[in-house]
Design a protein around this nucleic acid. Structure first.
Length: 501
RNA sequence: GCCCCGUUAGUGUAGCGGCCUAACACGUCACCCUUUCAAGGUGAAGAUCACCGGUUCAAAUCCGGUACGGGGUACCA
């Protein structure tokens, strides 16, 4: 039985996502934020965004905006945060330091004899570690300053030596606690050395800062990656020392790439914005990420945001690492592309068309112009990034199909040329120039010419698109327009004749 | 090294002691639809539930060990 349980007793939760502004927001971070969001919305609670920037050396310019942008793109709106404020601000740790809340907490722990100051130099720490390696002992701080004479420390401080505060980890005790996804866990304090809670620059470490802030912000549930699980005993010690109730813990499974190593840049897109730029839809990412470590317990996979919120619960989060299956994401994105309206798809596709369509296509890309083209390729697209290549054939001035491509099964250059010639004559003054009537006429033509429908349509398709795979033929003709259709077929006949001649 | 967590078809998941002769989805293959490709439909192949023991009338499910994988062991989060 866990000796240490949380004060939470049901009802709306308060959860926070607390990234460090140290670069792009990794997709794993977004997944954590998503689970926070889902839990908050499911229980009618609050989702809070907080910036943990206590490591002054790792700050990366611009990453805060990227965090906002990533979260908003996926649709994870926060209820309190650095940019929108809230009753428990500031929501940026570095801005909270001067209020003294972290130093106060550290001092309280020192006064109670649960923490102590330490002036060990990095060099000494390195020597200790070396010795431990040599004697095959567990690496970690040796507790040297636990028993230092207070006067000695005071002198050291006066001499300008950097001082940190370490928590005194009790030997012989065991931390027993319950985690919402892993169940009961027990870890011996034996294996944990006295860790730093306040750095020599006066900033708290994560261990101290997040606890002080979570308490101040009335956080009820802590959701984070499972890499934090072994740190829980340290945190329990701080909660105990500060006499504040601990939150409910849920350590989420890591996300692995297909090669079973942690998903990273190496595997291509890894940050949320990478996925946006690769042409994935926000809804698809939301849906896919929700399934990364969680499932509703039935066969449902494609779910709306509302459904996901309604069904989400921590006890259905999986313990095993979640594997990021890109081919499944592609499939899911395709289903989302097919679900939205043509107009929505056009809006989403235009940025991709602006950059991906041939240079001579008129800019800016007009929605009305590309709408019919997008409409006929919608169900063939898996990502928005495929939009340009799906419709660029409509923007080419001249296409040059080879005779080999034009000539279909059981046909030769002469019969192909003559079939195209006949087709051309029909197209020149066929009315109305619309898909259905055209199809009826050309089906009849195949019979008249005694060739397979597939062969006739195939050579016309190659003649008009220079592709074997293209949108439906008569939609293509109409989209191309009568004049350009004629031009392209004439061009194809010429190439057949010059090859034969 | 030590500590923690995990392990169900190629992949993602469902399974919470008897309904499991293990389900669903992606992927693969076949067929249907069909002017190509998609989409859609139907079906097939694919798992001795990591391994070895134990508990039980009964184990994918509970317990122990082993193997493998991941994580932790910082004045990083």
């Amino acid at each position: 039985m866990p000796e240490n349980s949380s004060a939470y007793s049901g009802g709306p939760v308060r959860v926070r996502f607390a990234p460090s502004p140290t670069g792009d927001l990794h997709i794993g971070g977004v997944r954590t934020a998503l689970f926070d969001y889902l839990l908050a919305r499911n229980t009618g609670g609050q989702f809070i965004l907080r910036l943990e920037d206590t490591d002054r050396n790792r700050l990366v310019e611009g990453s805060i905006d990227k965090i906002y942008e990533s979260l908003r793109w996926v649709g994870l709106e926060w209820d309190e945060g650095p940019d929108i404020g809230g009753p428990h601000g500031s929501y940026v740790q570095s801005e909270r330091v001067e209020s003294g809340i972290y130093a106060d907490a550290a001092n309280r722990l020192i006064k109670k004899g649960l923490a102590y100051e330490c002036d060990c130099t990095p060099e000494r720490l390195e020597r200790v570690r070396e010795r431990q390696r040599a004697t095959k002992q567990a690496p970690g701080y040796d507790g040297h300053c636990r028993t230092r004479d207070p006067q000695e420390l005071a002198d050291s401080r006066a001499a300008g030596n950097p001082i940190v505060v370490r928590l005194m980890v009790p030997r012989g005790r065991t931390a027993n606690f319950s985690d919402e996804v892993r169940g009961n866990v027990s870890i011996k304090y034996q294996d944990i050395s006295d860790f730093v809670i306040q750095k020599s620059d006066g900033f708290p470490t994560y261990h101290l800062a997040h606890i002080v802030d979570d308490d101040d912000m009335k956080i009820t549930h802590v959701l984070r990656g499972e890499e934090w699980l072994p740190s829980v005993p340290r945190h329990l010690l701080i909660y105990e020392g500060l006499e504040i109730p601990r939150p409910v813990y849920a350590h989420l499974p890591v996300i692995l790439a297909e090669d079973r190593t942690k998903l990273s840049k190496r595997h291509g897109a890894a940050s949320a914005l990478d996925f946006r730029d690769a042409g994935y839809l926000s809804g698809a990412i939301f849906n896919f990420l929700a399934l990364l470590g969680w499932s509703p317990g039935n066969d449902l996979e494609v779910m709306s945001r509302e459904e996901t919120i309604a069904k989400f619960s921590l006890d259905r989060v999986k313990e095993a690492p979640a594997l990021f299956d890109r081919s499944k994401l592609e499939w899911m994105n395709g289903t989302y592309i097919r679900q939205i309206t043509v107009d929505e798809l056009v809006d989403l596709a235009i940025p991709f068309l602006e950059s991906g369509l041939p240079a001579h296509a008129p800019r800016p890309i007009e929605a009305a112009r590309v709408r019919p083209l997008i409409a006929m390729t919608q169900e063939r697209m898996k990502t928005l990034a495929e939009a340009p290549e799906a419709i660029d054939l409509f923007f080419e001035d001249a296409i040059n199909p080879t005779p080999e491509e034009l000539i279909q099964k059981k046909m030769d250059a002469a019969s192909t040329a003559s079939a195209l010639e006949t087709s051309l004559n029909i197209i020149r003054d066929f009315e109305p120039f619309e898909p259905e009537p055209l199809e009826v006429r050309f089906r009849a033509l195949a019979v008249e010419l005694d060739v397979k429908i597939g062969a006739l349509f195939g050579s016309i398709r190659v003649a008009t698109t220079a592709r074997k795979v293209a949108p439906p033929l008569f939609d293509t003709m109409v989209a191309l327009g009568r004049d350009r259709t004629i031009e392209r077929i004439e061009n194809a006949i010429n190439s057949l004749e010059s090859a034969a001649g």
